[in-house]
Design a protein around this nucleic acid. Structure first.
Lengths: 135, 135
DNA sequence: TTAAAACTATATAGTCGCTATAAGGTCAAT
DNA sequence: ATTGACCTTATAGCGACTATATAGTTTTAA
């Protein structure tokens, strides 16, 4: 299977596949005489795994780490669970920060409901005054 | 006032100030004979405005846009409000996405509570199987 | 058969908002 | 005279791609 087919079957751009290879995430495939990359089913699974990790918003470094655990299947999976726990708390703190931000934005927006001249706009005034509740 | 003082009074790195100048966000200040930048109170206000916008997570492009509105103070502020509304819905969709992600991660994490061998780890299995609820 | 379309390859630069590094010039105090 | 704190410019790095340029190969269609 060539790169285009792999790309289509996993739903990834060919550039991204070459990028993952350069990053050491996807093992270098064989080559045809003309230099074209040749992939196997292993590559399909591997790439799909990477993509599912990315959907979970794991970083490439974290995916690397998971790969290392997979390569040593007899060790304890404590580290895998710890990685996920860390990631979950990371996501949670992102949510908290964004919720605080949303509150700030909504309260700022409430300062100008009508169609004023810019110089009288409560929104711009609000930012300029800087009396936003700092997070 | 020189760049270090401006940086300190607003709480920004000097590098960032030069960066904003190159981006056209902060007007080029005057120069001393030795080439040092000289800033005024206007610059302090301007930089503080930019920083408050950044705290609200507005992009530099959006800050540019706000600047253009400020420079024409007699036009209607509809566009200002629209910019903020867009930004609020952007933040809200980020929150929604992250909440869905958190749910996915938590349910994945629940697949392995104990200390197993990596090859039996429900978390890795869960990612590999790919039966996560795609958002 | 030939020409165009579709695919592949590499290398390089751009995105965003900084941050870090290198290599140097200026200034005040010791 | 030299140390240290400040200033200057230029350049590279972060993360995870995405886009562009340039070129070679294969497939399809006229």
């Amino acid at each position: 299977m060539r790169i285009g087919q792999l790309a289509q079957s996993v739903g990834v751009d060919t550039q991204t596949i070459r990028f993952y290879e350069r990053q050491g995430l996807l093992p270098p495939p064989g080559r045809q005489e003309n230099g074209y990359r040749v992939y196997t089913e292993k590559h399909v699974e591997r790439l799909a795994f990477i993509r599912r990790c990315r959907i979970l918003d794991l970083s490439l470094a974290e995916i690397h780490e998971l790969k290392r655990y997979q390569d040593d299947p007899h060790q304890s999976c404590t580290a895998v669970n710890a990685l996920l726990d860390d990631h979950i708390s990371h996501v949670r703190s992102q949510i908290t920060a964004l919720q605080a931000l949303e509150k700030q934005l909504v309260s700022l927006r409430a300062r100008c409901n009508d169609d004023r001249e810019v110089k009288a706009c409560g929104v711009l005034a609000g930012i300029s005054e800087g009396n936003m509740h700092q997070q």
